[in-house]
């Protein structure tokens, strides 16, 4: 068959590549980020905005160095609450997603409830969580969990509920039980949806934990920014934002890497829904 020959041909011929060629695509994110900071720095300097309104990046980095110890401590705290909440969301989201996707009836019955629940702004739940658990780590973890588990549930359930009827028929005709179909087809099939949803979820988890820390905690980046704001320490507020952005990007990249590792097949095949 010709495809065999072409595979061999392609693997023996080294791809023509110039060793000194700069890989612009890989460099682009760094260049653009640096560009953004440069434009920001110049813009603020030219317009003469006071740093209590919009500090320059250099002033923000200065603040990071100056307040490194509290920034580091609070960053770790926020990362901890976020990741813990996200972790619970992954477990619960997988479980609930599998449960909902299990049968059409459960899917039909629970879906509207889930939508309704998701429409509630989670910040409105923080006071309730504070009544139940007091302020601090627990409400932050729970808010991160509540805000981030929904995309996981929806994606896992969708992956299960959209099994091709033909695939199901082929297996059922062999005597497959619901459990077999879920294990052999449903769950592997929903994995790309699941890993895809982790990227969305982790960023939402940061929103949840920071919101909760801002209104109901004595530590974490949310709390740090809130108190810096009341002291008019605007550079520190921005330093907090920058730390959040860094943590967010790092976790997102981790999830994207995980997705590629676990479900590479879904990126190379066209998955029909």
């Amino acid at each position: 068959m010709t495809s065999v020959e072409s595979v061999i041909a392609a693997s023996t011929l080294p791809p023509p590549r110039d060793a000194f060629q700069i890989n612009w695509i890989r460099l682009a994110p760094w260049l653009y980020t640096i560009g953004l900071f440069v434009v920001w720095e110049i813009g603020v300097r030219i317009s003469g905005l006071p740093h209590t309104i919009l500090p320059t990046p250099s002033r923000i980095f200065e603040a990071i160095v100056q307040y490194w110890s509290p920034i580091w401590k609070n960053s770790l705290q926020t990362l901890y609450t976020t990741v813990l909440g996200f972790f619970i969301a992954v477990i619960a989201g997988l479980g609930i997603g599998l449960f909902i996707g299990w049968s059409k009836t459960i899917y039909a019955g629970l879906y509207p409830i889930m939508i309704g629940f998701n429409a509630i702004p989670k910040v409105a739940l923080v006071p309730i969580l504070v009544i139940w658990f007091g302020i601090g780590t627990v409400p932050a973890v729970l808010t991160a969990f509540l805000i981030s588990f929904f995309p996981i549930v929806v994606n896992v359930a969708t992956g299960l509920a959209t099994i091709e009827p033909e695939t199901e028929d082929v297996l059922r005709a062999l005597g497959a039980k619901k459990m077999d179909i879920m294990l052999k087809v449903g769950i592997p099939r929903s994995m790309p949806y699941f890993f895809g949803s982790l990227k969305v979820s982790i960023t939402l988890a940061f929103v949840g934990s920071v919101v909760s820390e801002t209104v109901a905690s004595n530590n974490g980046l949310g709390n740090m920014m809130a108190s810096a704001q009341s002291n008019f320490n605007v550079p520190l507020v921005f330093a907090g934002l920058l730390m959040l952005a860094v943590e967010g990007i790092a976790m997102y990249a981790l999830m994207a890497w995980l997705e590629r590792r676990m479900t590479g097949w879904a990126h190379r095949s066209t998955m029909s829904n």
């Binding site: 091709e164 033909e166 695939t167 082929v170 052999k184 087809v185 592997p188 099939r189 994995m191 479900t263 097949w265 879904a266 095949s269 998955m271």
Partner: peptide
């Protein structure tokens, strides 16, 4: 008609 091979 649709081969329904599992891509993974």
């Amino acid at each position: 008609q649709n081969p329904t091979m599992l891509p993974w």
